[in-house]
Amino acid sequence: SHMTRVRSTPGGDLELVVHLSGPGGPVRWYKDGERLASQGRVQLEQAGARQVLRVQGARSGDAGEYLCDAPQDSRIFLVSVEEP
């Protein structure tokens, strides 16, 4: 699977974008192995093949490994939250 490093700044919005190779099938997001859902500061959005995970007001606790799991694709993001 494809791995991307992402650096976010505290208080900013963290946005992870995945362009799937094909539509169809469920897409699931995980952080450090825990399933994510749209709630509170976390918003999951999809428009066709474009999948977006948005975390509003990033905090140090939002750092970690995020996985976008789809039938044909999986993407891993290693996220750090630190001052620039």
Rank of each mutant, 00 (worst) to 15 (best):
E82P: 02
P71S: 02
V81K: 02
T9M: 13
E82I: 08
L20W: 04
E82R: 12
R59H: 11
S8K: 01
L44E: 06
E15L: 12
Q56N: 11
H2R: 12
G40K: 11
Q56F: 06
E45D: 09
M3K: 06
L53A: 00
G22L: 09
R5I: 14
E34A: 14
S38R: 15
G22E: 15
S60I: 03
S8D: 01
Q39I: 05
W29E: 00
D73K: 04
P10K: 15
Q72S: 05
T9C: 11
S1W: 07
A47W: 10
G33H: 09
E15Y: 01
K31P: 02
S8M: 01
Q39K: 11
F77K: 02
S74H: 07
P10C: 15
P84L: 00
Q56S: 14
D62I: 07
V52Q: 05
H19R: 13
D69M: 02
Y30F: 11
S8T: 03
A47N: 13
S38V: 15
Q39P: 01
G33V: 06
R28F: 07
L78G: 07
T9K: 12
D73C: 04
L36W: 06
R54W: 03
R35Y: 03
G24T: 05
T9R: 15
L36T: 05
Q51D: 01
K31H: 12
R35I: 05
V79E: 04
A70W: 02
A47T: 15
G12F: 09
G57C: 12
A58G: 11
R7H: 09
V17T: 08
Q39Y: 09
G57T: 12
P10Y: 14
P84M: 00
R5Q: 12
G11V: 15
R75Y: 11
Q51R: 03
H2G: 04
E82N: 10
D73F: 04
P71E: 04
R50I: 13
A47H: 11
Y66G: 01
S38A: 13
A58D: 09
S60H: 07
G22W: 09
L78C: 10
E82Y: 07
L20E: 05
R41F: 07
Q72L: 06
G40F: 10
V18Y: 04
L53S: 00
R5M: 13
Q46H: 10
P23H: 14
K31A: 08
G12P: 03
V18S: 11
L36D: 03
R5N: 15
G57N: 14
G40Y: 10
R75Q: 05
G12K: 14
Q51W: 01
P26D: 15
L36Y: 06
G40M: 10
L36Q: 06
L67T: 03
Y30S: 02
G57H: 14
C68L: 01
E45G: 08
P10N: 15
L16F: 04
R41N: 12
R50P: 00
S1C: 12
V52M: 03
P84S: 00
L44N: 06
P23I: 12
L44W: 05
E82H: 11
H2C: 07
Q56I: 04
T9P: 01
G24I: 03
R54Q: 11
Q56G: 14
C68F: 00
Y66M: 01
G61K: 10
L78E: 13
F77H: 03
P10H: 14
R35A: 10
